[in-house]
Computed example of a mutant assay.
Amino acid sequence: MFKKGDVLKSPADFDNAMLFGILVEVWQRGELLDYGSRITKHTESAVFLDDAEGYFLKATCQFKVR
């Protein structure tokens, strides 16, 4: 499964993180944007988290297992 620091890359990674309720961190250009939330939904281009009002773009952000 996942271990701390793993980067979510494939649609299956995002599906599994969502299914198993894995906490993820969101990074952009070396800056931590979200410390640890669960994925509620994802599309081809965006990720929605349970504590965020908006979404994060897959093209500009990195999603790491917390």
Results as ranks from 00 to 15, higher is better:
1 M>N: 07
2 F>G: 03
3 K>S: 13
3 K>N: 09
4 K>W: 14
6 D>Y: 15
7 V>D: 05
7 V>Y: 07
7 V>P: 02
7 V>G: 02
8 L>H: 05
8 L>K: 12
11 P>R: 08
11 P>M: 07
12 A>F: 07
13 D>W: 08
13 D>K: 05
14 F>M: 10
14 F>Q: 02
14 F>R: 01
14 F>D: 07
16 N>Y: 15
16 N>H: 11
16 N>M: 15
17 A>V: 04
17 A>Y: 06
17 A>D: 03
17 A>Q: 02
18 M>C: 02
18 M>F: 01
19 L>M: 05
19 L>P: 00
19 L>S: 12
20 F>Y: 15
20 F>P: 02
21 G>C: 04
21 G>D: 02
21 G>M: 05
22 I>D: 11
22 I>T: 11
23 L>W: 08
23 L>Q: 13
23 L>V: 06
23 L>E: 13
23 L>F: 09
24 V>A: 04
25 E>W: 03
25 E>T: 09
26 V>K: 05
26 V>E: 04
27 W>D: 03
27 W>R: 03
27 W>F: 13
28 Q>L: 05
29 R>G: 01
30 G>N: 09
30 G>M: 12
30 G>C: 13
31 E>Q: 09
31 E>L: 09
31 E>Y: 06
31 E>M: 11
32 L>G: 04
32 L>K: 14
33 L>A: 08
33 L>P: 06
33 L>M: 13
34 D>Y: 14
34 D>E: 15
34 D>K: 09
34 D>F: 08
34 D>P: 00
35 Y>C: 04
36 G>S: 14
36 G>P: 11
37 S>N: 15
37 S>H: 14
38 R>I: 09
38 R>E: 11
39 I>M: 07
39 I>S: 07
40 T>P: 03
40 T>E: 12
41 K>N: 11
42 H>D: 12
42 H>Y: 13
42 H>K: 08
42 H>A: 08
42 H>W: 10
43 T>E: 04
43 T>Y: 03
44 E>M: 06
44 E>R: 07
45 S>M: 03
46 A>M: 08
46 A>F: 02
46 A>Q: 10
47 V>H: 05
47 V>I: 14
48 F>W: 11
49 L>G: 13
49 L>P: 05
49 L>H: 03
50 D>R: 01
50 D>T: 00
50 D>A: 01
50 D>K: 07
51 D>F: 14
51 D>R: 09
52 A>F: 04
52 A>E: 05
52 A>Q: 15
53 E>F: 13
53 E>I: 06
54 G>I: 12
54 G>C: 10
57 L>C: 08
57 L>G: 10
57 L>H: 04
57 L>F: 10
58 K>S: 12
58 K>W: 08
59 A>M: 09
60 T>N: 12
60 T>R: 09
60 T>L: 12
61 C>P: 06
61 C>D: 14
61 C>K: 07
62 Q>H: 02
62 Q>P: 01
62 Q>G: 01
62 Q>E: 15
63 F>S: 00
63 F>M: 01
64 K>G: 00
64 K>C: 03
64 K>W: 01
65 V>L: 00
66 R>Q: 09
66 R>E: 12
